[in-house]
């Protein structure tokens, strides 16, 4: 049952990692980071699901699903949005200096 969720989460994470490793456009790197984040979110939420459980809103009918991973996931989504915004700010700033969004060309800080 939850094995499908785990499989999709692992697929998303590895696809995101592959994108970060191979693509040269900085925007594609950010897309890869977003996919990796999505994989982690999906893993946490599908792990929290308990067959027959209701949503964690009181009063419960029967048992509820695990609310703790939900709280962690919520935190992760907001933090993820913030660091993606920061990544865009970096890309926009670098593009003004280098006139490119190619990560292979950002060599100014290389030792």
């Amino acid at each position: 049952m939850s094995i499908m969720g785990f499989a999709t989460a692992v697929f998303l994470f590895c696809l995101g990692l592959f994108t970060v490793l191979t693509r040269r456009s900085a925007f594609k790197t950010v897309i890869g980071l977003m996919l990796m984040e999505s994989g982690v979110l999906l893993l946490l939420v599908s792990w929290a699901y308990i067959p027959g459980g209701g949503p964690p809103i009181l009063p419960l009918q029967g048992t509820g699903v695990d609310p703790l991973p939900h709280a962690l996931t919520l935190t992760a989504i907001v933090i993820g949005a913030c660091d993606i915004a920061l990544a865009f700010a970096f890309i926009m700033k670098l593009e003004r200096f280098e006139k490119s969004v190619d990560v292979d060309r950002f060599r100014r800080l290389r030792g």
Binding site: V45, S46, V65, T73, L74, V78, A81, I84
Partner: peptide, 25 residues
């Protein structure tokens, strides 16, 4: 998967706000 809070946050922030930031950038 019975996670209404997470669904709401995901719909608003990840597919709404982050996409608008992507388009601006």
């Amino acid at each position: 998967l019975r996670a209404p809070d997470v669904a709401l946050t995901q719909a608003i922030i990840n597919s709404g706000l982050v996409t608008s930031l992507l388009l601006v950038a």
